[in-house]
Design a binder for these strands. Structure first.
Length: 321
DNA sequence: GCGATTTGACCCGT
DNA sequence: ACGGGTCAAATCGC
C-alpha cells in the first residue's frame, strides 16, 4: 500500500529536498513576475501547490518515519489538487471520503490540555464522535466552521494516540477554501489584493526558510529538516502577538515550531516532522490560494522581494486595526 | 436566540 | 454483517 523507497527513506528524502528546493525556485520566479504578469503568477502558484502536495505526500506516506504512526494511511499515494474530490454537501458521498486524495496526517501535542486545545489556526466544528475498533479513545470528526456559509469542504479527524494520551493524531481531509475570508473574520481591515499578496509572499518565504544542510550531511538521522527563522520575520520570540506570525493572523500561529534538532537532544519525535511538514504545506496552499486571488486583479502598488536575502519591501506589516 | 456540541441513527464501502 | 463517516435532533452554553 505504501510506497516506501527504502528502509529509512533516504532516497525519498533527497527527492523531497529537491522538491522543496524547487518550491523555493518557483517562489523566486513568482517574485520576479509578481509585478507585471498575473497570469504567469497563477501558473507558478499552481506549480508550487502541486510540488508541495507531492512532497508532503511522500513524507506522509511513511518514508521518513521510523516509528509507528498508528493508523496513518490511506490515500496519500497520488496527491493532487483535491478539487476533483470536493464533496457536495449533499448526501451523495456520506462515506469513504477517507480514501480521497489530499489527506494529511500529523501528530500533535495537546500541550497538556485536551483535544479542544488543539488549535491549528482554523475554526472547526465538531460533527461527530465515534468509538473506533481497536482504539482506546474515540475519534472526533470536525468540519470547517465555514462549510455552510462559504462552502469550505475541509474536514479533520482527531484521535488521541493510544501510546501517549497527550498526543493526537490529526488527519486532515480536503483543503480550506475559506482562507482569505478567515482573514477578514480575523478582524482585519479590508486590504487591497496586492497588499495581501505582498504580505503573503513574505510569509511564504519565511516559511520556506528550510535548513536543508542537515539533510545532506546525514547527521540528522531522524530529523529530515528543521526550520529556521529569518531574523525578525518569524515569531519565535514574539509571544505577545502570536497572531502576527504569518501576516495579520491570516495563517497559522498555533503549533510551536521549535523543530531545530538542537531542541530535542535525546529523541526527535516524528510528530515534529509532521507538524512541520503539514505547516509548510498548509501555509503554501493557503498562500497560493490567496495569491491566486490577489493576482487576479490588477496590480496597484509596488512590491519588492528578495527571497534569499529576505529583503522585503511591501506595504504593510503594520496595519491599523 | 443562536451557534456549538453531543449522541444515536443512518448510510455505505468492504 | 461490520466498521467507519455523516446526519440531525436534542442539548448545552453564551
Amino acid at each position: 500500500m505504501e510506497s516506501v523507497v527504502d528502509g529509512h527513506g533516504g532516497g525519498s528524502r533527497l527527492v523531497v529536498m529537491a522538491e522543496l528546493s524547487r518550491i523555493k525556485e518557483l517562489v523566486k520566479q513568482l517574485d520576479v513576475q509578481l509585478q507585471d504578469c498575473p497570469d504567469l503568477c497563477k501558473h507558478l502558484a499552481e506549480q508550487i501547490f502541486t510540488v508541495t502536495e507531492r512532497s508532503i505526500g511522500m513524507i506522509c506516506s511513511g518514508s521518513f518515519d521510523g516509528r509507528k504512526r498508528s493508523a496513518i494511511s490511506a490515500g496519500l499515494d497520488s496527491p493532487q489538487l483535491s478539487e476533483s474530490a470536493t464533496p457536495s454537501p449533499l448526501r451523495t458521498n456520506k462515506k469513504r471520503k477517507m480514501m480521497a486524495k489530499g489527506n494529511h496526517q500529523v501528530r500533535v501535542s495537546s500541550g497538556g490540555g485536551g483535544a479542544e486545545t488543539l488549535d491549528d489556526g482554523y475554526s472547526w466544528r465538531k460533527y461527530g464522535q465515534k468509538e473506533i475498533l481497536g482504539a482506546q479513545h474515540p475519534r472526533g470528526y470536525y468540519r470547517c466552521t465555514y462549510r455552510k456559509t462559504r462552502g469550505c469542504a475541509a474536514t479533520k479527524q482527531v484521535q488521541r494516540a493510544d501510546d501517549d494520551p497527550t498526543l493526537f493524531d490529526v488527519t486532515y481531509h480536503g483543503t480550506h477554501t475559506c482562507v482569505h475570508k478567515m482573514a477578514a473574520a480575523a478582524n482585519l481591515q479590508p486590504t487591497t489584493p496586492n497588499r495581501d499578496a505582498g504580505s503573503l509572499m513574505k510569509s511564504l518565504s519565511s516559511s520556506l526558510t528550510l535548513n536543508t544542510e542537515g539533510l545532506t550531511s546525514g547527521s540528522q538521522q531522524s530529523t529530515p529538516f528543521s526550520f529556521s527563522s529569518p531574523p525578525g520575520h518569524y515569531p519565535s520570540s514574539t509571544p505577545s502577538t502570536p497572531e502576527n506570525c504569518f501576516g495579520q493572523g491570516v495563517l497559522f500561529s498555533p503549533y510551536r515550531l521549535e523543530l531545530s534538532p538542537a531542541t530535542s537532544d535525546s529523541s526527535c519525535y516524528p510528530m515534529n516532522h509532521f507538524e512541520a511538514e503539514w505547516k509548510v504545506q498548509s501555509e503554501l496552499q493557503q498562500l497560493v490560494s490567496v495569491l491566486v486571488d490577489a493576482t487576479s486583479t490588477p496590480a496597484v502598488e509596488e512590491t519588492t522581494f528578495s527571497l534569499d536575502g529576505f529583503e522585503f519591501f511591501d506595504f504593510d506589516t503594520n496595519f491599523d486595526v
